[in-house]
Design a protein around this nucleic acid. Structure first.
Lengths: 209, 209
DNA sequence: TAGTCGTTGTATACGCCGCATAGATCGGAG
DNA sequence: CTCCGATCTATGCGGCGTATACAACGACTA
């Protein structure tokens, strides 16, 4: 079965499930052409409806973009939460980092949408920060367990910022194609994982020092 | 004197310096509205010429974007090179990181343009990687000096990737507004500098271990 | 069962956009 | 002075987001 949200030619005047179809078509289009190629009209075309139909389900194009981003944030939070069961906090830190990489690679469309400048504008996505911030608490809790002793909250936050920035920078640089060019003879994913592993080691050592 | 590239009403049929005016207007517009708000027609309007005039100096809109990005890459490379005179390689590593932050903050328009997805598409900017990669050699040379002993090239590249990803992730997260939301009570720039300092320390220790 | 009304679709239009073709205006070389 | 290439304008095309007006359905109610 195809994953496309094409129109059923036998449908009546009303679609019946247009909202879901629009979201699916949006994710497909984003995966194909990126946020730059995102177009409400093209999505309506793929869903087999008139250009104006989507406006009965989303007030404007940013609302549909926002919906895709929201789903991405929630999926990422789910994946992060799933690792909080791991016993050893040090290996859990590494697992969280690798999961961040995996999510960004597997869900390219969502990840790019989550961080596109149009939605980073607060007036287009007021509660974006709440979504973006959620994984950070998992990170802080893990760092606290790693330390195994009382550590000032500020200290935890500092290393949390280091860890977060590192994985985010990795996937961003990768998406730009920089890594493939700067390290032409190496497979990229292992190289990224290695960077995560090394940083994890450094942070664990620093926290237990 | 204004920095805007407004039309001189007394000019004749030919502008005389339109190319430079277009680039300036483009940087202004990018600073104001970001890549999302970048529009050739708006730039032509600000330069006081007809919508079609820019096409005599740039083949299409990506060419003008590319010009702004190219200037940004060169400015960044200049700033990086300027730090290579510093004697102590460890403090130079920190200085390179801080300079990356400073550049991203001072030259928001250029930085955003350098990394926008439209230009990361290789067909729109074939030699982008050469530009983006240039600061990396400074980084590697600095790491080599820090080690002070023979270290496998791969080892240097790994920590280089860590350092680069960290600063790039920091400025990216900052641009998204995440840092201001996750750490509401702290000034942002010192926090970023602190992350750079900590990471520098960790890498220096690891390389000299 | 017939009428009514809110929901969800379409038709059409407006002003943006990037970009193409054709023509106007200049400055400089012969 | 004349011609020509470089640089400008005028006009137009199709695509975009989105506003207003209207049409079709389904569910509730008399």
């Amino acid at each position: 079965m195809s994953t496309t949200a094409a129109k059923d030619p036998c449908r009546g005047y009303h679609h019946g499930d247009l909202r879901r179809c629009l979201v699916e078509a949006a994710r497909d289009l984003l995966a194909e052409r990126g946020v730059t190629g995102f177009s409400l009209r093209e999505i309506a075309r793929r869903a087999g409806v008139s250009p104006r139909a989507p406006y009965h389900h989303f007030p404007d194009r940013t609302a549909l973009l926002r919906e895709v981003a929201r789903m991405g944030f929630e999926e990422l939070a789910r994946r992060m939460a799933a690792h909080m069961e791991d016993e050893d906090p040090a290996s859990r830190l590494e697992a969280l980092g690798e999961e961040y990489l995996r999510f960004a690679l597997e869900c390219r469309a969502e990840f790019q949408t989550m961080h596109c400048d149009e939605l980073c504008d607060a007036k287009n996505f007021p509660d974006r920060q709440d979504f973006a911030d959620r994984p950070f608490v998992y990170l802080l809790r893990t760092l606290e367990e790693i330390a195994g002793k009382p550590v000032p909250q500020e200290e935890l936050e500092r290393y949390g910022l280091v860890a977060w920035s590192l994985v985010h920078g990795l996937v961003t640089l990768r998406a730009e194609g920089v890594l493939g060019a700067s390290f032409p003879d190496e497979p990229i994913e292992p190289m990224m994982k290695d960077a995560v592993r090394r940083t994890t080691e450094l942070i664990v050592a620093a926290l237990r020092r």
